[in-house]
Design a protein around this nucleic acid. Structure first.
Length: 291
DNA sequence: CGGTGTAGTCAG
DNA sequence: CTGACTACACCG
């Protein structure tokens, strides 16, 4: 709990270094130099000898759906990141969630999959990462978002409150920008400290599949005008009720921080582009009610 | 009997 | 919009 307060206060002052990538240049060790001299052929031979029966695989390769793409964490049974690229047309139409239902994703081996029983009665809601409401243009696209590969255990108040308004804000951005690319996903961050001052990562797991309950959720929003990226906003939100008094900007962080915490480089082909802060070109205010 | 499916209600 | 929960029909 103390981390939450620290987070609320601390993120405001977080250095905002969007679009700037720094790669620490480690001193070249002897081993490193040797490694560089080994030809790819030799490396392949070594691999074939030591990994005779194949290279171990975490199954994080991108999985493609009608209107979203995701990478899945087979250990935590929740996504790592879920990507969308939406325009205002995507959020309009007659698709209705009453025709959709939550179900396991057959692309995920059952050994690594959550099921509805894990969530029911757990005290945690099934929270979309790619939201259903971004897919009103196509019932199948909306149905796809109900696969549990796109779902994380989310605090009920957070889901229907702050996070819901956050998602509405993302749809609102499609009225101002040609397209809006969004990465959403869960995070487990250290939230506690033991008596020795050692930081701890503590998160619940639910159901027989022990689906990980993230401590936080994140969104990365990249808006485009005339086909070129113009601004970016990154946010980390605690997975707990968020009072209305908090504004979106209080949860803003740098792209660097979010990439370091998740261990993912989100835009490997977005090189050197100077991007403005989303909240400097847009209000970043959430509306109280739907609209 | 337990599991599935749907429709309606309730709440943030 | 975001969800859970309940009652009831159906089925093997």
């Amino acid at each position: 709990m103390s981390y939450t307060r620290g987070f609320f206060a601390g993120t405001v002052t977080t250095l905002f270094a969007v679009g700037v990538y720094q790669y620490a240049q480690s001193p070249k060790s002897i081993q490193h130099q040797y490694d560089q001299q080994v030809s790819d052929d030799v490396k392949e031979q070594i691999k074939r000898r030591i990994l005779k029966y194949g290279v171990p695989n975490r199954g994080e390769e991108a999985k493609v759906f009608t209107n979203h793409v995701l990478s899945y964490d087979q250990s935590k049974k929740i996504p790592i990141w879920v990507a969308e690229c939406i325009t205002k047309e995507h959020a309009q139409g007659n698709a209705n969630r009453k025709y959709s239902k939550f179900m396991p994703d057959s692309q995920i081996l059952s050994l690594f999959s959550a099921d509805n029983q894990d969530y029911l009665g757990s005290g945690w809601s099934r929270g979309h990462m790619a939201p259903a409401g971004n897919n009103k243009h196509d019932q199948r696209a909306m149905d796809d978002t109900f696969y549990l590969s796109n779902i994380v255990p989310q605090d009920m108040d957070n889901n229907s409150g702050f996070w819901n308004r956050f998602e509405m804000y993302c749809r609102h951005l499609t009225k101002r920008f040609d397209s809006v690319q969004i990465f959403s996903g869960p995070l487990v961050l250290p939230t506690e400290t033991d008596e020795k001052g050692q930081k701890l990562v503590v998160y619940p797991v639910i159901g027989k599949n022990e689906v990980a309950v993230p401590t936080h959720l994140y969104k990365i929003i990249l808006v485009e005008t005339n086909g070129t990226p113009s601004a970016i906003g990154c946010f980390i939100v605690p997975n707990q009720p968020i009072e209305n008094k908090y504004s979106l900007t209080e949860f803003q962080v740098s792209l660097e921080e979010i990439q370091r915490r998740i261990g993912v480089e989100f835009f490997p082909k977005l090189d050197g582009t100077r991007l403005q802060s989303l909240c400097s070109v847009d209000s970043c205010t959430l509306t109280r009610r739907q609209g």
